[in-house]
Design a protein around this nucleic acid. Structure first.
Lengths: 218, 218
DNA sequence: CAATGCATGTTACTTGCGGTAACCCCGAGT
DNA sequence: ACTCGGGGTTACCGCAAGTAACATGCATTG
């Protein structure tokens, strides 16, 4: 019937799509985010137009790829965030999970952080609006929103919690990201130490610290 | 003589370079970071090869442009950080300076945050090493390092201050950046409120907050 | 069984951009 | 008069995104 037919097509198309994504993944992880559509098609054993039929344009393909990895990472972060333990313990665990992930697979990290690639299209009109605010990688956005959600659900900070939760969510995620990026580049200390230091920052040690003698203070 | 000759040439070349940068600035601020070399050359009233003679490649031009703006922004941040006031006041003032800057000229912001553009070069060898850790925009790197410097110079937190200062420097800058980016996109609240909320986060209000009734706590 | 779809795949093209080679022109110095 | 070097141009290469038009295999339908 029509339904089974459609279902068959659907599943077949979906399977194909998944295979293509696997191939794209391999290439991107091997060649970096600037892998060409030709290269990806070759890896998949086919040619360009098929990719375009499935994903519309390069942005579509990359978005699909990114969603896969983002979902996976977010799931493990959520697990760390949901574990039964003290708040400090949970924050550290979440930081550690994120850092362990980007440490274990830096290429995935590199790819996920790569911004939208919005250019390249000849008659590109979408760029004239200057998508300010959409600069950050979607992963960061999503992490920020998720964390905001968690904060808002579980934390009690009087009125204005919602706004505050979102600010903190994005802020904390940004802190984690920037520190992680720097750390990944220089590897100045073991992971646990970084985790502890960041947690200390969130726990207000900046405010408690004393001024160094002689200076104007900080 | 040789010296005056060299000086004349130098200054002339420098003046030209400055003019070209002005033109590039106009175009980039008008068309976004994806402005083509042709467009920039046209705006400057000349043609591509001259740009390449002066800046080597597109990366060179963009780097030169970025340095100009980055220097300017860093100077005003340093001023806010150096003002004579309480620590909290100074932190808020610095945050506000940054946010005011990106609010006033989002296009500059957008350009500065744009990553290195490392691709495009045909025989590109630098990409194979996967410059992980160099993902962040140079501006963020520099801000992180500067802040780390300031923290290390003025704050007293026992042994291991140096490491801690760098972690915090990059972390705080990342927080500021991410929150700013999100805020710029959604404008959910006035600037002062954002500043206060972020400062609260740094002041440990996250640790102090109570759990909401019913949940597993956070 | 032919005939019609229709998804799947290919070749070959266009457009646009980064980057370069080769040539051009004009004013200064000998 | 001549060449020499800085500033400039045209015309090109290579490459990657994206598309049009054509080919093929496998089901359903008259």
């Amino acid at each position: 019937m029509n339904t089974t037919q459609r279902t068959d097509q659907q599943t077949s198309a979906d399977r194909r799509r998944r295979e293509l994504l696997e191939a794209a993944d391999r290439v991107v992880l091997r060649d970096g985010p600037h892998a060409s559509m030709n290269a990806i098609a070759a890896e998949a054993g086919i040619t360009k137009p098929i990719l375009y039929r499935h994903f519309g344009d390069k942005g579509g393909l990359y978005a699909a790829l990114a969603v896969r990895h983002t979902d996976a990472l977010l799931a493990s972060l959520r697990a760390a965030l949901d574990a039964p333990a003290e708040r400090r313990q949970r924050v550290e665990s979440t930081l550690d999970t994120y850092l362990a992930a980007i440490e274990a697979r830096p290429q995935v990290y590199r790819f996920l952080m790569h911004p939208a690639e919005g250019a390249g299209t000849p008659g590109d009109q979408s760029e004239q609006g200057f998508d300010v605010g959409k600069h950050s990688a979607p992963l960061l956005r999503r992490m920020g929103e998720e964390l905001a959600q968690v904060i808002e659900e579980r934390l009690d900070v009087g009125p204005g919690t919602q706004q505050l939760a979102r600010v903190w969510g994005h802020g904390i995620v940004g802190m984690m990201h920037a520190a992680g990026d720097w750390w990944l580049g220089e590897r100045p200390c073991p992971r646990e130490e970084l985790v502890r230091t960041l947690a200390d920052l969130l726990w207000g040690r900046l405010a408690e610290a004393g001024d160094k003698a002689g200076g104007p203070g900080f």
